[in-house]
């Protein structure tokens, strides 16, 4: 997966980039299955590899599919990014070990979620729709707003331009 990401940075042909990002999404979904997040993996495979690839291709169709050679030197961004990386690794060493059952993340509200108060075997669904209902309502509204924004941005008002021409 890391190799895919690196190749992704180096390629300038945007078509290859889009196909590689679809591949990357599938690999990510596999990793998520390995981490027991089946619901998330399903979404990632459908969204990342399916819908967003189609969308990127659609956008590419509307734009030029070749990236021009950058005139700026790549060293400053590289140095900046790698220094951020070193800083983050230093910070990550203070986090709990991988799969540590005593980590704080497993202590707080999760034992109550796993008690299955609402009698729905898939805990993810129960938490999503019931315990964190407000969150999900907000997320749905965000998705709705994004859709409305895209309609506002991309709708071509043929009739209004014609009216303008008539007015002139």
């Amino acid at each position: 997966m890391a190799i895919t990401a690196v190749v992704l940075t180096l390629r300038r042909n945007l078509f290859a980039v889009v196909v590689l990002s679809g591949l990357y999404s599938f690999l990510m979904a596999t990793v998520l299955v390995a981490l027991d997040a089946v619901d998330v993996a399903m979404t990632e495979a459908a969204v990342g590899a399916g819908i967003s690839t189609v969308l990127l291709l659609g956008a590419l169709h509307l734009c030029k599919s070749e990236e021009s050679r950058s005139t700026r030197s790549p060293w400053l961004p590289l140095a900046l990014a790698s220094s951020v990386g070193v800083l983050l690794i230093y910070g990550a060493l203070g986090l709990p070990d991988f799969a540590d059952p005593n980590a704080p993340i497993h202590q707080h509200v999760v034992p109550r979620y796993l008690q299955n108060e609402v009698d729905v075997p898939n805990v993810v669904t129960a938490v999503l729709a019931s315990f964190r209902g407000y969150d999900t309502l907000g997320e749905t509204t965000v998705v709705f707003t994004a859709g409305a924004g895209i309609i506002a941005l991309l709708r071509r008002r043929k009739s209004s331009t014609e009216k303008n021409r008539d007015g002139k």
């Binding site: 619901d39 459908a46 898939n122 129960a126």
Partner: peptide, 13 residues
Amino acid sequence: GDFGPGGGFQAGV
């Protein structure tokens, strides 16, 4: 979605 992996988000997509 109540019993296996799944739910509204996945189904919609």
